[in-house]
């Protein structure tokens, strides 16, 4: 077995009496899409925050690229190569689309402490930024103000910013949410090829997408992972069916 890129070891976190993460073990290996699913309130977002930074686990550790990053800040983890997209688009809304991706490209370069050269004339940054926009299909929108983008376009822009970072792992929190049929289909096609560049930890609600894309799936229910396995294993797992899929199938 190859060394995992991301290894979450026995991570626990509680808020008062509420246990949000209970002894979670999870790893993401090179080249895979590892999907994290679970009903609302299962603690998916809490877990993502503990991985990306911003929330300290009570116990356990997060090991990324062979290094224990549990004590590091969000920014430090991003510099080490975590490319995150947010559940609710988190962009600089007053900036143009291009400025947002240039910011990402700056992040990859590592230093923003350049005070005099006009950043929007920096060819290297612009090339990286435009390449990322082309990949997600936003090149036509580059001069638009970000606040004028549609919901779906903002999601695409989030992905583009993550691409400019050239990360070692993508942490994607419901990238498909609100994209619509066509948008979801295109993004799925894109993620399918993206796993070659860096593995993806994909938090997703859309079951069809997860079953089509994921190499492995972990199911989070009430703060603990009740099963991890391939698509077939998860589909067949009676515990999962009871806790999660049963509801879905009963509804459809």
């Amino acid at each position: 077995m190859t060394e995992p890129v991301l290894d979450i070891r026995n991570v626990s976190k509680s808020f008062g009496a509420l246990v949000a993460s209970e002894g979670i073990n999870l790893d993401v290996r090179p080249g895979e899409i590892h999907a994290l699913i679970g009903p609302n309130g299962a603690g998916k977002s809490t877990l993502i925050k503990q991985i990306a930074g911003g929330l300290q686990p009570d116990s356990g550790s997060v090991v990324f690229d062979g290094q224990d990053v549990t004590a590091l800040t969000t920014a430090a983890r991003a510099r080490l190569g975590m490319g995150r997209t947010f559940q609710i688009s988190s962009l600089a809304m007053d900036y143009s689309v291009l400025q947002n991706v240039v910011l990402g490209a700056l992040g990859r370069r590592g230093t923003v402490f350049r005070f005099f050269r006009p950043v929007m004339r920096d060819r290297e940054l612009l090339a990286q930024a435009r390449a990322a926009l082309v990949e997600v299909g936003l090149e036509e929108m580059q001069n638009m103000r970000t606040s004028e983008l549609s919901h779906g376009q903002r999601r695409q822009l989030e992905v583009a910013v993550a691409l400019t970072l050239a990360p070692k792992i993508f942490l994607m929190d419901e990238p498909m949410a609100g994209l619509g049929m066509e948008g979801s289909r295109r993004l799925m096609g894109f993620l399918d090829t993206l796993r070659q560049r860096a593995p993806i930890l994909l938090v997703e609600h859309d079951m069809d997408a997860v079953f089509q894309l994921a190499d492995r799936i972990s199911v989070l229910v009430y703060g603990s992972i009740i099963a991890t396995g391939t698509v077939e294993e998860i589909r067949a797992n009676p515990q999962v069916r009871a806790a999660y899929l049963g509801e879905e199938e009963a509804r459809s």
Binding site: A52, G53, G54, T73, T74, A75, A76, A78, R79, R84, F86, S90, L91, A92, M93, D94, Y95, Q99, N100, L103, G104, L106, G107, R108, G110, V112, V161, L165
Partner: peptide, 15 residues
């Protein structure tokens, strides 16, 4: 300027 608009975004690109 990005930090003024959205600190989370700036942290996510490593600053």
């Amino acid at each position: 300027g990005a930090a003024r608009q959205n600190e989370e975004r700036v942290q996510a690109v490593g600053q």
